[in-house]
Simulated assay, not measured.
Amino acid sequence: MCGRFAITLPDDAMARLFDAVPGNDLPAVPRYNVCPTNDIATVTSADGQRRLRPMRWGFLPHWYKSPTDGPLLINARAESLAEKPAFRAACRERRCLVPATGFYEWTKDADGNRLPWYIHRPDDAPFAFAGIWQDWERGEARFTTCAIVTTQANAALSSIHHRVPVVIAAEDWPLWLGEAGKGAARLMTSPPEDFFAFHRVSTRVNSNRVEGPELTEPIDPDAE
């Protein structure tokens, strides 16, 4: 799964990277502890134009009567995306990219303590998660919401978690965004074995109230 991530790329750099027009209401960056229900920057495409726009992380199906009417759907499994009632229309019609510079996963020690790991490109280059999105409205409440697509972890990451976010390579952005015809389903695979590096980080990131670049810095597990 993917329950926390980091994005440190400035808005103008994100807009250039994705060749997208940035919105005026994008969430502040850098952010080292992006949590569910936060607004996040996403990339969508329509009518020949890409947009960099904010969405609420946590997909709300149209039948939810309130944002808390059911489970918080921050992830969507690639294997069942096309069949799940909550996601099947979005996976065909409303796909997006979620820019990131890293994400967190947790293991547990013998006492059940949650131990965080930071997963990132070896060169710390930004990348893009596969996402799907949905508008949700009840009365005066209106949200544009999204979920990050996940798949089975590759061998390199399976020691940390059995699921991993789907990463869309730059050359495949047009296909995922619907600009290059059909066939996006073939992109929902785990990343190459050498795509990510990872290291233990401080348990301070376990709190959704903590921010700062020190959250991504490696630690000596024995010294914590």
Rank of each mutant, 00 (worst) to 15 (best):
Q49M: 11
A185D: 15
M188Y: 10
N206A: 08
A41P: 14
E193W: 10
W63K: 07
F127E: 00
F87S: 03
P192D: 15
P27N: 09
R16A: 15
W176E: 02
D194C: 01
W176I: 00
E140N: 14
P191R: 11
L17A: 14
P54F: 08
L81V: 04
D222G: 12
M188N: 05
R16G: 10
E211T: 10
L72Q: 12
G70H: 08
R186S: 15
G102R: 05
A141I: 10
L97S: 00
T42D: 01
F87V: 04
R186G: 13
Y32Q: 12
T44M: 04
G48I: 04
A82D: 13
Q49E: 15
N154G: 15
P99R: 08
R94K: 15
P213S: 13
T44R: 12
L26E: 13
K84W: 01
Q49W: 02
N24T: 08
R88T: 00
E224N: 13
H161T: 07
P10Y: 10
F5Q: 08
R163Y: 05
G212H: 12
R200Y: 10
Q49D: 01
T107N: 03
P174W: 05
P213N: 13
V29F: 07
D220P: 06
T144A: 13
N33Y: 07
A185Q: 14
V205A: 09
S45W: 11
A6Q: 04
G212F: 06
I7D: 15
D39W: 04
R209I: 00
G3C: 09
A100I: 06
A170D: 13
A78C: 11
E217K: 14
N24M: 03
L17T: 12
A156I: 06
